[in-house]
C-alpha cells in the first residue's frame, strides 16, 4: 500500500506542477435560432484566447471543429468557454454538431501586422 500511496502522490504532483492559469483575451460567440453570431471571427496569430459561447436557444448545441481540435456542448440557455490557440495564420472552420446545416462559421487567424493593415 505504501508504494501505491507514493505512486498516487507522484501522479497528483505531476498534475499540479504542470498546470498554470492565464489571464486571456476574450471573444464572444452567440447562438440564436441555430446560427452562430458572428459567423466569422478575426483573431491574432500566436495568441491564446478564451472564446465564450452563449447559447440563447432552448436546445443544446455542440461547438465542433476538427481544425481547432475542439468539441464542447453548450446547454440550452447557458454559456460556456473554450480555450483556443496559439494558432498559425489561416482559416479554421467550426460548426454546430446538432444543426450542422445552419450553425456554421470560421475563425480567421491573421498576423498582427496584417490585422493593423486591414484596419
Amino acid at each position: 500500500m505504501h508504494k501505491y500511496l507514493q505512486g498516487s502522490l507522484l501522479l497528483g504532483l505531476l498534475s499540479l506542477v504542470t498546470t498554470q492559469c492565464y489571464a486571456l483575451p476574450e471573444l464572444v460567440l452567440e447562438i440564436r435560432d441555430h446560427l452562430f453570431f458572428p459567423s466569422q471571427l478575426n483573431v491574432p496569430a500566436d495568441k491564446k484566447l478564451r472564446l465564450t459561447i452563449i447559447n440563447h436557444d432552448n436546445t443544446p448545441e455542440e461547438f465542433d471543429s476538427f481544425d481547432l481540435n475542439r468539441e464542447k456542448v453548450i446547454f440550452a440557455n447557458s454559456q460556456t468557454r473554450i480555450f483556443i490557440g496559439p494558432l498559425n495564420p489561416g482559416e479554421y472552420a467550426f460548426f454546430g454538431e446538432f444543426n450542422p446545416s445552419t450553425a456554421r462559421g470560421k475563425i480567421i487567424v491573421v498576423n498582427h501586422t496584417d490585422d493593423q493593415n486591414a484596419n
Binding site: S15, T18, T19, Q20, R70, K72, I82, F83, G85
Partner: peptide, 12 residues
C-alpha cells in the same frame, strides 16, 4: 475530465 481542453499547458 479534470481540465478544459486548451486551458492549461496540457489537458488532464
Amino acid at each position: 475530465m479534470m481540465t478544459e481542453q486548451g486551458q492549461f499547458w496540457a489537458d488532464w
